[in-house]
Amino acid sequence: MAEVYEVTVWTRGVSMDKEGRDVVSALAKAADREGKFVQAFDNYEDLPDRVGVPVRKYARISDEEIVMRYNYENENPDVVVIVDAALVKGVNVLRGMKRGGVLVVNTNRSPEETLKFIPNKDTLGAIACVDADGIAGRATVDFSGTEGGVDASGLGAGIAAPLAGAVAKATGVVNLESLAAVVANREALKRGYEEVVVKTI
């Protein structure tokens, strides 16, 4: 079976739910444009209709068809993206991560400062901090894309754009041009790509 590249996004119910979904949708759609086999989906068990509850969104990218498409979780993520930095304190966000994985955090704090809250940081290959809030200015809230619905409000107008840019820079899993073709706020995407601070561990 071919390796499947797994992206897990941690975000919060309602207030940042769409932003989290936008990150995985943008990465999957960009990879699709590059001819990869992709999958982007919400965690089904999280019940994201409660304000602030930690919830997960997943993307899977592969050179071959994805065998376990019908599964609930990314068991061994290559990348974990944190939409709200405070989440690193409340959950073991690196659970199951492959050795040498990358953690991307939306924060204006430094990688060193953020790492203080990650007890199992020896799993990490790198941490990348990007001030997505500062770059995009706002989180969009919309419910049309929940529960398998089609998002009617557009992709990547808020903080997801710089976060996706940061993932592209820190991992190279997709390139910036493919992302620019799918997200609404290209300026924020580009700034996320350029301004992310990557620290190798």
Partner: peptide, 17 residues
Amino acid sequence: AHELDFEAGVVRLEKLF
């Protein structure tokens, strides 16, 4: 005050459920 301004105070869960 932002939660990351404090070292402790949040129960860190291994799994959500």
